[in-house]
Write a protein that binds this DNA or RNA. Structure first.
Lengths: 199, 199
DNA sequence: TGCTTTTATTAATCTAGATTAACAATTCAT
DNA sequence: ATGAATTGTTAATCTAGATTAATAAAAGCA
């Protein structure tokens, strides 16, 4: 059974209560409405164009969200690690097929909520509404910063910022995925790394 | 007095109630805690690095948010028009000086909330918490789409998408601001427009 | 363990878009 | 209306980063 008493949930609870104070009952509800799942490295949790995306909280491991364009070209749009929320929000909220695919970059343990249970959670207590308001708000702020970087940074600046923001990912994720996330080619990233290492 | 009865507020109310059902009392509160203000074209409502940003709802007109980098180079990061929310969210929420500057591109009429009143509003009714949760959620979805465009679109595709998304802005806003928003140079946008007009 | 597939590197060439600069067209203030 | 300042255009040149292709290294699998 998944509930707040599981020792392993302490880090998630710490994260939840960073923004909002939840009662024990609320926390119980949170875990009871979620579903625990594990995936092996390289498994795909959400298939582009097929099922709708759940709302995903990563307990441990790393997920990669990517978008495949008309030319069948894959663009990495997000990495998620321990304690991060991820998923195709639009797909989740409107029960549409996901436009992204979400893949496990390591063995991964996640909690997922479907739309129905998410709605129950929000209906159960406005504290959840508040929690997600703040979660989305913060995510919005970091998305805005990312857009600024996209518009105004050189490839080198983008890469260095990435290393600063996600120090652990460099070791976990293939270089070509990092290149894609940054919007540059793997060949150019390789050149860049060579140049930087010689500095 | 600003309240829900003002004829001129109907379009704002329609917008609010698109997501959440509000009581008359809630709507009264919403307008009473907000402050009505008008600005002339080219006036700056929020100065980068000085005051913190309010949370702004545009009643009518057009606002432009821009970021000035270390090299004193201006990057337009958002346009806002009738019924849009805008402001430096991070500055607003944490009472820090704004990192953006926000300028009126036309004569403009806005409603603004300071952090204190925003908190009162959310404390007054969870419906507001819910409204802003959904507002930020939708904004997040469109920011993600914009990031995909940034990463994967050519300058031409970006410009054509911009025209589709903001058909009215082309006439209101100087071309160089549109170029900046798209992350290209005004010279290149000019070339692009010439090429497109010849098609 | 060796074989296959995927990923990373290196080098050569190419191009979308930047930069510079000079000129034309608008906009703005008096 | 008129001159000054801002914005837009055009053309020439330059460069960050893309593309292609061949090779090396690493990872996955029987």
């Amino acid at each position: 059974m998944i509930n707040k008493d599981s020792v392993q949930n302490t880090s998630i609870i710490n994260n939840l209560t960073k923004y909002v104070t939840f009662s024990d009952e609320e926390l119980d509800n949170f875990f009871e409405l979620g579903e625990l799942a594990t995936f092996k490295k390289n498994q795909t949790l959400v298939h582009k164009g097929k099922e709708s995306s759940p709302f995903i909280l990563i307990k441990q491991g790393c997920l990669m969200t990517s978008y495949i364009d008309e030319g069948d070209f894959r663009h990495v749009i997000q990495f998620g690690i321990d304690n991060w929320w991820t998923g195709d929000l639009n797909s989740f909220m409107n029960n549409e097929p996901s436009i992204y695919s979400i893949k496990a970059m390591t063995d991964v343990e996640v909690l997922t909520w479907n739309k129905e249970n998410f709605d129950l959670l929000c209906a159960f207590s406005p504290n959840f509404e508040r929690y997600f308001r703040i979660l989305f708000q913060n995510s919005l702020i970091s998305h805005q910063k990312r857009i600024i970087r996209n518009i105004s940074f050189s490839a080198e600046q983008k890469y260095l910022t990435f290393l600063k923001n996600y120090p652990k990912l460099e070791l976990i994720v293939p270089q070509k995925c990092i290149a894609s996330y940054l919007g540059i080619t793997p060949v150019f990233l390789s050149n860049l790394r060579k140049k930087l290492s010689g500095k």
